[in-house]
Simulated scan of single mutants.
Amino acid sequence: MFHKEGHKIILITLFIVVAISLGADYLVNNSVIRGGIVIAAIALLVLVLQFFRNPKRSFITSDDTVLSPVDGKVVVIEKVFEKEFFKEERLQVSVFMSPINVHVTRYPVAGNVVFSKYHPGKFLVAWHPKSSEENERTTVVVNNKSFGNVLHRQIAGALAKRIVNYAKEGQVVEQASDSGFIKFGSRVDVFLPVDTKLDVTLNQKVKGGITVLARK
């Protein structure tokens, strides 16, 4: 199963792979070189298919938990001053996604979308300290009855050239449902109340909509 954001790219990639394979068969006489070109083209298609995969998952939702919005590795756990929406200190949990992770972004909590904004910006590597403020990004805040306002921020990286955000202010959203998609690698930050009890540790691998980041 593949995410809808990848359908067009998958078809284009498939067309390119077929064209390269036919061209190599017609133009390249050396069988070793021809075979290498075809294998490389197929490898490209496999990489694209893997990137846009959207595996079927069973979610256990609860207003008393905050779920990881994406697959990846926890790279930041720290108290920071969140200056865009809260304008006060918050507990930040950041999950870094490699190109081989599932890149669907899911709502970490259920509730009402009270803020949704897109910011154009740079494409610094996702682990750069200034990436959360200077890179292309989207900020979404969901008001949840247990945790209050929970912010998650999609951040583009050096490879990510497009962030898709489905959140609209006024929406009522379900926990673990699709919030957006980041094309080709990046990270997502989650901002929680400073007294939140976390269920994850630094460098832990997490799954979107499955791993509990925090609970009441």
Rank of each mutant, 00 (worst) to 15 (best):
R90G: 01
D64C: 00
V188W: 05
G35P: 05
Q92P: 05
H119R: 08
K56N: 08
R215M: 03
S62F: 09
Q171S: 13
S179W: 02
S179Y: 02
G208D: 12
I77F: 09
V93Q: 05
E84S: 05
Y166G: 02
L91K: 14
V102D: 00
V102L: 04
V104Y: 05
V150W: 12
I9M: 11
F52R: 09
A19S: 15
N112V: 14
F15C: 15
V28D: 04
G121L: 06
N149T: 00
Q154F: 00
I37L: 15
R34G: 15
L198G: 08
Q175V: 08
Q154V: 03
N29K: 12
D64Y: 01
Q171N: 15
E89K: 13
A160C: 14
N101R: 02
D178G: 00
F52N: 12
V150D: 13
V200T: 01
F81S: 06
S68Q: 03
F184Q: 01
I42F: 15
D189P: 02
K130S: 10
I10W: 11
N101P: 08
V28C: 08
T201R: 11
L67F: 06
N30T: 06
P108G: 07
I210W: 10
A43R: 03
I210G: 03
L198I: 13
V188M: 11
G148K: 06
K4H: 11
